[in-house]
Amino acid sequence: MLRFITSRLLQSLLALYLIVTATFFMLRFVPGGPFTAEKAVPPEILRNLEAHYGLNQPLPRQYLDYLGSLLHGDFGPSFKYSNRTVNEILADKLPVSLELGLWSLGVALLLGLSLGIIAALRRNTWADYLATAVGTIGLSVPTFVIGPLCVLAFAIHTGWFSASGWYLPADRVLPSLVLGLAYAAPISRLTRGGLLEVLHQDYIRTARAKGASEARVVFKHALRGGLLPVVAYLGPATAGILTGSFVIETIFQIPGLGREFVTSAFNRDYTLVLGTVILYAALIMALNLLVDVVQAWMNPKVRLET
């Protein structure tokens, strides 16, 4: 198990390093710097700016400097917001996005698992069809269509929620529901499929023969095996929820990291873009690692393969 975790960890670190390098050079080789947008900056001021941010150094030097400060956990100053560091901006925005992500994941799991379990146990009844219908809507209607429609229906027309912002606890409801719904659909499908496959197996019949109650059979015996596909899907799902927050935060005007990332990319704020990409990549990889470990813990078959 330890060997398994170590090898995955090394693989993630390698990938992270590749991301940092690729993003760094991609940003430097594109036309237009962070200061070209400001009109008519006199050449001497431009030179001072570049000297201040170390942009006049040779590229390999800049790269090494950046890696060096990264190792100290320092993402450097922001190019766009003078006198703010990237660390400050990230620390400011990340909690908002994390909260949105956690709520959405909660919605997705709660809705997806319960729909999936009901659908599997009441196969080919109206409950199954309802779960399939909800799943299909979640799969086919994109968040950027459902989102504005929900704002229209539940904020503008009925006034139950505010249309934008992130101040009251009630402001969390619509964005988390919209983002979570998109991922509830695949989770319910995977749960249904996984459970159906497991419910036919001998050990379930044994459990029933022993006289275990139906609830115990489902929740104690079947779910452990049946949920493996769901656990495997959680890695891509969390990555999707993180990137999905770009759109959700734009629709609901939430001051989170997703919106900041899109804005910083438009502004060519190199250090902020790099910082955000690295943070996202690290988050996604950490979550993938966690998912791998949980998966291995749940299923000895996976553990033995590596």
Partner: peptide
């Protein structure tokens, strides 16, 4: 193994970067 690594990358982010720059 390369596919595994690529799977774990936040690709949407790279597409956004490509399109912006």
């Amino acid at each position: 193994r390369a596919v595994d690594i690529l799977y774990s990358l936040p690709f949407t982010i790279f597409v956004i970067l490509l399109m912006v720059f």
